[in-house]
Design a binder for these strands. Structure first.
Lengths: 231, 231
DNA sequence: ACGCAAAACTGCAGACCGTGCAAAAATCTG
DNA sequence: CAGATTTTTGCACGGTCTGCAGTTTTGCGT
């Protein structure tokens, strides 16, 4: 068997990856064929050539096999945020970190469109997908917080228990902002993907993505098209 | 039993509401007692005094009983958006519509905090909660679109199939903005609730909520506390 | 090449979830 | 009260997911 990658790791690792990929591939293929709801774990496992029990050694639930696409993205985004130069505004840092990761979306159009189609027809799976992103959100919020307030005495572990009300207030605000930024950023990505996936032939994803962040950076004012488009 | 509302409808309606409330109450109580994962449908049904089968006449899934709090809020928010005076910016309209609905949060502190606690310990349920809000999001996006672009010829059903690229572009932008606004608004509410529910004794929810929307309206710039707080 | 230890796969039993169906009970209508 | 409508309920059935124990496969030192 010819491998595109130089066969990292031993035979064990390769087989595990192969089985995992086979399960995902079988699941998506069956879902497109007969609809997500009519795809049982038994069918997926049989199509992938493993036992039903083995399926649950790879995925915690049946739905997970449909949402496990690009699940390792969040780590890279977090690292990109932490590694960003100290210059630009937090929103720009987040935008660029996400954009770098999302370039893969346009390159792997087929996979993403197929998954987007599957997810669009199954709201419950979409919910689970969002849920998968929520854990990411916490990590991302921490990364953003460190990017912003690194070394702030307000975050010291051994701060006095009875800080002044002003400091408490400022600390509270410092906790709120990164969380909001992370959550809004994730939401912007979701909206951009949903919007683009229904009219991909007309627009490049990058443009839609940039447009969402322009809206955010501008404070979500009245849309340009209503008041006369100014690029 | 004293009713706050004058017992609308006949005996049937009242009994249905009572059963529904009993199921929710039993579910939340059991969840706080022994953890969400250790609460079976059988236990909930038994505690509510109905059969297991009846539970599924009220909720489509076990998890739904935990996320069905304030599920009728979205309609009122949509109506508030549509009924808003034509003056203020869309973001303000959305903020005020949500704020009016969220006043109930502070009044029913106990219920919301209990639910927030349950949801915090169960990420999967939080995901489902978000999913429940996603349908709302579509309706809210439509309401916002109507609030903004009512009567715009770009949205006419019988528009020419081959509109000019410029019009297509503008129409696309008009579709993106309301969706983004609705999604971001929902996210802001979620972040505000989560943030407030962990330190409710220190701050009023209204203040946290307003602060999130101040961040949004300002375009999510560097947080004030880092650069020196200016109220 | 051989054999042992670790890891993975598998079948099985069992609890739980969720649905369709039809009978029984409760409620509404006249 | 009688009939129509709605709700509740029990039952059967298929699907999801977990723990356990036995078997097979892989990694590795000799």
């Amino acid at each position: 068997m010819v491998e595109g990658v130089p066969a990292e790791g031993g035979l064990r690792e390769r087989k595990k990856r192969a089985t995992r990929a086979a399960l995902v591939e079988a699941a998506v293929r069956l879902a497109v064929e007969r609809g997500v709801e009519n795809v049982t774990v038994d069918a997926i496992s049989a199509a992938a050539g493993v036992s039903t029990r083995t399926f649950f050694n790879y995925f915690d639930s049946r739905d997970e096999v449909f949402v496990m696409v690009g699940s390792d993205s969040s780590d890279r985004v977090c690292r990109a945020v932490l590694a960003a130069p100290p210059g630009p505004a937090p929103l720009e840092v987040l935008r660029d970190a996400l954009a770098a990761e999302l370039e893969e979306v346009e390159q792997q159009q087929e996979v993403w469109c197929l998954h987007a189609e599957v997810l669009r027809k199954a709201p419950q799976l979409l919910a689970r997908r969002i849920g998968a992103h929520m854990a990411d959100e916490l990590g991302l919020a921490e990364a953003l917080a460190e990017r912003i307030g690194a070394g702030s005495p307000l975050f010291a572990e051994d701060r006095p228990a009875f800080a002044s009300p002003e400091d408490e207030e400022r600390r509270r605000a410092l906790e709120l902002y990164p969380r909001l930024l992370a959550a809004v950023g994730g939401t912007a990505v979701r909206v951009a993907v949903e919007h683009w996936s229904v009219r991909q032939d007309r627009t490049r994803f990058t443009d839609v993505f940039r447009e969402t962040f322009e809206h955010l950076a501008a404070g979500l004012p009245e849309p340009p098209a209503t008041a006369g488009r100014r690029s």
